[in-house]
Amino acid sequence: MVAPEHTGTVDPGGAPPATAEPAPAPAPTGPPRNRLTDRIGSVEVLAALLILLIALREPLAALLSAPSLATWTTVFVSVMVQAVPFLVFGVLLSAVIAVFVPRSFWARALPRHPALAVPVASAAGVVLPGCECGSVPIAGSLIRRGVTPAAALAFLLAAPAINPIVLTATAVAFPANPEMVLGRAVASLIVAVIMGWLWLRLGRTDWIRLPHRPDLDDARRGVAFWSAVRHDIVHAGGFLVIGAAAAASINVLVPERWLQALADEPVLAVLAMAVLAVLLSICSEADAFVAASLSQFSLTARLTFLVVGPMVDLKLISMQAGIFGRGFAARFAPATFVVAVIVAAVTGMVLL
């Protein structure tokens, strides 16, 4: 007799073959998901805020009726209403330049001699404008494409200050003082050229870290365009709100006699407005309206505010440090501040 064959394996103790069982499903490692919080987004938050405002409309109306808060609201809303159209238009132009203008165009358009390329690149800010939020990454792209750093940095400083959008906004903000437009254009162009030439003389290429902006390198230009628009409008719009709120707060909280005492000292007024421009970090398409609201100060002091702001402020220093490196920002920003204050003060004394 032949023993039957077993298809499975038999252990030495004669136990029947083990059958394979499916492995248990792994237990979830994270906390249980809440379906309610998963459905809460920006639309739901906005709806909740609107409902809250409706419910509290009477206490809010009583609060806003206070004279000081009414003045604050008036100044804030007036700055925002006047500045937002210029900000949006400037951001759209900046995105068009960053995405649709070929980066190799600049290398072909600029003179080969670096000393001549600096003033040409500075003047190009009139033809191809962009706000400071867009000019920093554009300047980095120019350097990456082979444009001499001095020319790219001159464009970085000039474009946010002398482009048609900014000059038009300045004319609208100062309807009784058209010389402010000329003073801003001349002083800003001089500062950009001086800083470009100073970089040729004293700058070192190892201070600059070559930039990378992946949202502008997208193969689909439409996607890159809207990405640039969203990026710049969020950053520039946020700083505009902060700047408008700060300007309104200065008008309400700071006693008039303090501002007047500071404004009566020409040197202190110029320095105070220069420091204020750095701290407020307002987009260049909107800063003229904030400067116009500070009517206690002289035109020269407010011109200093308009020249310094688009070239040296907190957001620009942080952007320059992130794109070009901390070593570059630590050297370039203070030098630009000093040159801008001196040139703006001299220009104001001559033209205003």
Results as ranks from 00 to 15, higher is better:
A47W: 12
F76D: 01
S318P: 02
S78K: 14
R57Y: 09
L271H: 02
P31V: 06
A161W: 05
I97E: 06
A247C: 12
L271W: 04
A261P: 05
N177P: 00
G196C: 01
V136T: 13
Q320F: 06
V88M: 04
A169P: 09
E21F: 10
V252E: 03
V186W: 00
P28Q: 10
I165N: 01
I190P: 08
R39K: 12
S135C: 13
V307Y: 00
L253G: 02
V223T: 15
A340Y: 06
A335M: 15
A152S: 08
V88D: 00
R209T: 15
A169M: 03
R144Q: 12
G327M: 09
A224V: 00
A277S: 11
A269S: 08
A124W: 13
R331E: 05
V147T: 09
L314S: 10
V88F: 10
L294T: 11
P24S: 11
R201I: 13
F324L: 00
L259Q: 05
A248T: 07
L280T: 13
A321P: 01
L53G: 15
G348Y: 04
L276K: 03
V312F: 02
P17M: 09
T74F: 07
E285I: 01
L92F: 13
H235R: 10
T71R: 10
P17L: 10
A3K: 15
F89R: 02
P175Y: 03
P12L: 11
D264S: 14
F86A: 08
I250F: 03
R213Y: 13
V241D: 02
A333I: 13
A246M: 15
L60Y: 02
G238E: 04
W258A: 10
R35K: 13
P59H: 02
T300V: 14
A139D: 02
V254C: 08
S68F: 14
V223Y: 07
L280R: 05
D313R: 10
L189E: 08
I233A: 07
V45Y: 10
V84H: 00
T347R: 09
T7G: 09
S281H: 10
H113P: 05
L268Y: 06
A95H: 12
P31W: 01
W106N: 02
R221L: 13
L128Y: 13
F289V: 00
A47L: 15
T37P: 02
A95Q: 11
L93E: 01
R201G: 12
A171N: 11
V75Y: 04
L46W: 12
V96R: 09
A115I: 15
L87D: 00
A171T: 09
L314N: 08
L128N: 07
R144P: 09
A158Y: 07
A47K: 14
G238I: 07
R144G: 11
A187E: 06
A48L: 15
L268W: 09
L240V: 08
I165T: 01
R326E: 03
I323C: 05
S104K: 14
P137L: 05
F76W: 07
M1P: 12
L351I: 15
